[in-house]
Design a protein around this nucleic acid. Structure first.
Lengths: 342, 342
DNA sequence: GTAACCTATGCAAACGTTTGCGCAACAACT
DNA sequence: AGTTGTTGCGCAAACGTTTGCATAGGTTAC
């Protein structure tokens, strides 16, 4: 029971006194093998419980039928949801998924890329670390003909394949809603400067203000490191203003959670004294009694599904998406405001 | 750049006019190879960017340095947290992790096991589907010498390796707290009958009642399918009783969320008219203003870490944990009540 | 001077599978 | 009878690496 070797194609060949090539072909239903032989082979294979050794095939075919996924953190619902989507598509293609959590650590990201290359994955999906600003480790994969598709947290360059989410669309919806409700002073609580997401938010914030003919006012723009205490400080700063904003765009739902608590602590009322719009559309809002006016959904699942489909396109049609003759595979999903006030 | 073959050991051998075996040994620092040769080989290897083809090695060594993880659902924080723990340990052992979501579907679970076997993973970690009641698909892995360790949702049998969580300890703490606070009628909102977790809870519920000399009262025991509407019905049923319970043990935190909403809707006050104790210790409580008295933590991360260490023990010492001469690897972690009222 | 022993290297098999090519045997045409 | 075609199968190479065994040349020991 221990080291009893698994049945191989040779075993079958020996039993039937045919060659291994015949067996191999018979098992694949190759037309050049006679019907009787094919049947006999398949019967024996069944009997002794033969199963092809995938390792051998991977080795020979130089494919592993495995894709690698590199994400910052599995514990964020956004990414676990994305991973779910990836797994769904991979399964349809009979592929396996191996994962690596970068934990938002650039060095780890590099190590994981190395590891995936060692493992000869057939493709890689990546959502970047917040510190990633060089991309040699990914470029390196080209040497091994390992295609890469980025999603959500993507490099700021054009010569790549990616799927990302356009925050502007959702934000425009949100801003329209605020303006319609009469808000004229709309603040911003942004994230740490080094995050790409932070830059994005300030850009669309400005665009939205402009679109609605509202002035830019540095006083009502603050930022947080995303630490709880810092989140509280940020909202307190806004609340302390002589002329405080009546609505605030907030970096994400987690920050809003702290803001809401702080507003209550200050004896003010959310959605009356001050309203919030945020990003993420966390499922927990369903259970909260105090929630932002709306949150902007970035469709983790859809993003990852499309990214995975792109990846398989590149795997299946070598050359696709390498920007040589074929164009890069790029897609931007519109974000959407989810209105909680309905 | 496209199909340029990767450098192999042969390549190096040719360049140096030595045999491949010499190269192989030199690269491993084998003592029987002369110092100069070793150096020359390593230098060339470096130069041409040689990297061992892991697929070839996996094939030859009959190992893939990959473990498989089968869990019901990545989107549950419990499991994504568990997966995090698994990945941590796997990384320490230089192993990869491939995942499979059973989506609580028994047939999918079987398919995933098949797939992992095909992929020749070196071991498997499993948390069962709620419908899993037969285990042939796992037993089958023994033929392939693929060790299996179960965690959290484990089979109800003794001849396995597992890590699980003992709900009783946390529950005793909780019950003690309730009794101390003067509660005498302590109800139960349990899950669907077919879940192992449901049976567990009713057992420990009875034990705890007995321990505290409280009577069993079928009237204050209800159950829910875990659907939102059903959760609400369950709590409403209790609230409607002439002599309603003053405290309720609830299947998990998600159910409590609905219960809290229903209590409020009924014009009653949580923690005054009725108190809750639950399971899961979800992180979101931190942000809620109305929360249960306490929730029982089941330590997903610790469970998975220990389970993974067991798995590596089995991988590294063939025979370990197979219950032959060596004992099964089994561990039970005590759950712990996390007191939110402090 | 020859037996015994290192040292450094090469040979070849093995892991399991796929596949291009070749070659029988037989059938079907001229 | 000779050519051509078809059918069914085997041979052997190839994928990249590791490793037991053999061996050549050199040293030491008696």
């Amino acid at each position: 029971m221990q080291k009893n070797k698994l049945p191989t194609i040779k075993e079958i060949a020996k039993r039937l006194n045919v060659s291994v090539s015949t067996v191999s072909r018979a098992l694949h239903g190759h037309p050049s093998i006679g019907l009787v032989t094919t049947m006999r082979v398949q019967k024996i294979a069944e009997e002794i419980g033969y199963e092809a050794n995938k390792s051998a095939i991977h080795f020979k075919e130089r494919k592993t039928y495995t894709i690698g996924v590199i994400i910052p953190n599995l514990s964020e619902p956004f990414f676990s949801s994305a991973l779910s989507g990836i797994e769904d598509i991979a399964e349809k293609h009979n592929y396996n998924v191996i994962i690596g959590q970068s934990l938002d650590n650039f060095e780890r990201e590099k190590r994981i890329v190395e590891n995936m290359k060692d493992h000869r994955v057939d493709g890689v999906l990546v959502s970047l670390t917040k510190d990633t600003s060089t991309y040699e480790h990914f470029e390196n994969l080209k040497k091994y003909n390992i295609p890469v598709v980025f999603f959500d947290r993507v490099p700021a360059r054009k010569d790549i394949n990616f799927v990302a989410c356009n925050l502007l669309s959702g934000m425009l919806q949100a801003m329209a809603k605020l303006v319609k409700a009469g808000h004229k002073r709309i603040g911003l609580i942004n994230g740490p400067a080094k995050l790409a997401a932070t830059l994005q938010r300030v850009e669309i914030y400005f665009k939205c203000l402009k679109e609605n003919n509202l002035p830019i006012d540095q006083d009502i723009m603050v930022s947080t490191s995303l630490a709880k205490s810092d989140n509280v400080k940020a909202i307190q700063k806004l609340l302390a203003l002589d002329e405080r904003p009546t609505a605030v765009i907030v970096f994400n739902d987690y920050v809003v959670l702290d803001c809401i608590a702080a507003v209550k602590a200050a004896g003010l009322e959310v959605n009356k004294d001050i309203s919030f719009i945020s990003f993420a559309n966390l499922p927990i809002w369903e259970y909260m009694d105090t929630l932002p006016l709306a949150s902007i959904e970035q469709f983790a699942h859809s993003q990852s599904v499309i990214a995975t489909e792109y990846l398989f396109k590149m795997i299946d049609e070598p050359g696709a998406g390498y920007g040589t003759d074929k164009p890069y595979l790029q897609h931007v999903i519109d974000s959407e405001m989810i209105d909680y006030s309905l």
